[in-house]
Design a binder for these strands. Sequence first.
DNA 1: TTCCATCGGTGGACAGTCAT
DNA 2: ATGACTGTCCACCGATGGAA
Length: 222
Amino acid sequence: MNNTLGEKIKLLREAKGWRQDELAQKVGINRETLSNIENNHRQIKADELSRFADVLEVSSDQLLGRIPLDEVNLEEFYPSDKTKEAMRISVPAKNVQKFREVLLYILNKVGAKSNVGETVLYKLLYFIDFDFYEKYEEQLIGATYKKNTYGPTPIEFESIVNEMIADEEIEKVKSEYFQREQKKYLPLRDTCLDLLSAKELKLIDEVLNRLADKNAAQISEY
DNA sequence: TTCCATCGGTGGACAGTCAT
DNA sequence: ATGACTGTCCACCGATGGAA
């Protein structure tokens, strides 16, 4: 995502459904000043950047482009296929390995539950990443989430899962859940806990205790 | 179709700040 | 003191959407 700072502010403002004067008031500047910032006719000051980040609920690094804005920030913004591809490639190798271990950990703990199909798995990964970010301001597994009909989907999920199936770390099975075909994943090896810290495991356990017995609709409601 | 309100963008005037 | 730069206020314009 190569948007300028002004364009990012505008996208985030529109995603929240605010008018220029509403955002300007929240940040404590005039509407004309905001218009100039959004259109790159005026530089933004450090204290203003911090206030924009607070009001728009993103980090200053995200506004400055050091960390890409994601689908959580831009609910109404849909990246192009090219952008998605760039995001997929940008996932660091260490996070891919972590993603694998987190997925195996979840499957070992709750994968056998009848309600835990592919959709519930997506939602659990999303909540784990989201809660971790909220607590520690960094993503645990660093996945990029795409909004779809059934909720947030990690863009990297399919390719990583296919690699794991090829590496015989998990297997994909199909079962019936309330007269519907359900895709399930079963672990074929134990989790390598070396890659997950105590605080990461604690947070994952908390999310699983809270949500793993719910079905997809109940998690969405939550 | 016309009218009206709202929103976003822009330009001019003015004032404040800062470097020279 | 002067000029450059910036922020604010005010006014205006065009686009858009809803109501009559």
